[in-house]
Design a binder for these strands. Structure first.
Length: 274
DNA sequence: CCTCTATGGCGAA
DNA sequence: TCGCCCTAGAGGC
């Protein structure tokens, strides 16, 4: 259930708890048994995230294919649980060097061993990531502003905005007051910059908090001090999955429309077309 | 028991 | 644009 902030958080947890000694790797469900046997007993060199791609680099003693490439897709999850957990379909299990915690992979879209060349190939397909400081924002702005595709579509293009998913798309556009249907070429440089800068801020916050919170304090409805729990995704948001509810800013009802197979949410009043 | 849903992305048509 | 893959939890009967 991941957008980029989740993947970066997973990389951080792996780096904090799984390096420094040999890890036990297995595939209880059996699907990745070959990879697991090659990695078992070796050390993790580094875990890192680019957009929604998670890479776990093992030491070179593993062989030429020393990186585990994981993409969680829509329903995959990597959870840190007690080592004796058996629940569900555990495709890959990595036990930390102290044997106190296990990373359990369930339902991934991809999980495979790759070499350095394939690692570079995946990076080449991945655009600038608001959570990395190596992003080339100038060329991103040019690409967006030369496209006839809508900004709602462009934001989901991982070659342009790596790590952005359906929630950050909806929330960044709302906060910038931009309709998802405006073509990229009709946006000003300042508007594209505004979207990018907001994603940088929101996603960094998401990594720290472990959930997507986008509502500014002055717009938070009075909940008498109670924590809301508006939605399964856990955070407090302006428009995502709030169709039919009142906009926190203007009171109009939030709209919903299926666009390219995904549910799009926005406020027609705060995000006017033009 | 069944059906539906989800923060993704791929490949066939 | 559609169907499909992967999983788990919620809700309906």
């Amino acid at each position: 259930m991941p957008e980029g902030h989740v993947i970066h958080r997973l990389a951080r947890t792996l780096n904090d708890g799984f390096r420094g000694g040999p890890v036990a790797v297995s595939s209880p469900q059996g699907r990745f048994a070959r990879a697991a046997s090659l990695l078992d007993g070796h050390r993790i060199r580094l875990a890192e995230a680019y957009g929604k791609h998670l890479f776990i680099h093992f030491e070179d003693t593993v062989g030429p294919e020393a990186t585990v490439y994981i993409h969680l897709g829509l329903i995959g999850q990597l959870r840190f649980e007690p080592v004796d957990t058996q629940k569900g379909q555990i495709r890959l299990r990595i036990v930390d060097p102290t044997s106190t915690c296990a990373a359990h992979l369930r339902g991934p879209q991809f999980c495979r061993l790759i070499d350095r060349e394939e690692f570079q190939t995946i990076l080449a397909r991945t655009g600038p990531d608001p959570l990395r400081d190596d992003a080339d924002v100038a060329s991103l702005t040019t690409a967006v502003r030369s496209s006839r595709r809508s900004i709602g579509t462009l934001l989901m293009d991982q070659k342009l905005f790596a790590g952005v998913g359906n929630i950050y798309r909806a929330e960044a556009l709302f906060r910038q007051g931009i309709s998802p249907f405006i073509p990229g070429k009709d946006l000003s440089e300042q508007e594209v910059r505004g979207i990018w800068d907001d994603l940088v801020e929101l996603m960094a916050k998401g990594v720290e908090e472990g959930e997507i919170n986008t509502v500014r304090s002055e717009h938070l409805p009075d909940r008498m001090g109670r924590k809301p729990r508006v939605d399964d995704h856990g955070g407090e948001v302006y428009v995502y999955r709030r169709a039919g509810l009142e906009c926190y800013v203007c009171g109009h009802l939030i709209s919903e429309q299926v666009l390219q197979g995904r549910n799009l949410f926005w406020c027609r009043h705060c995000q006017p077309e033009r």
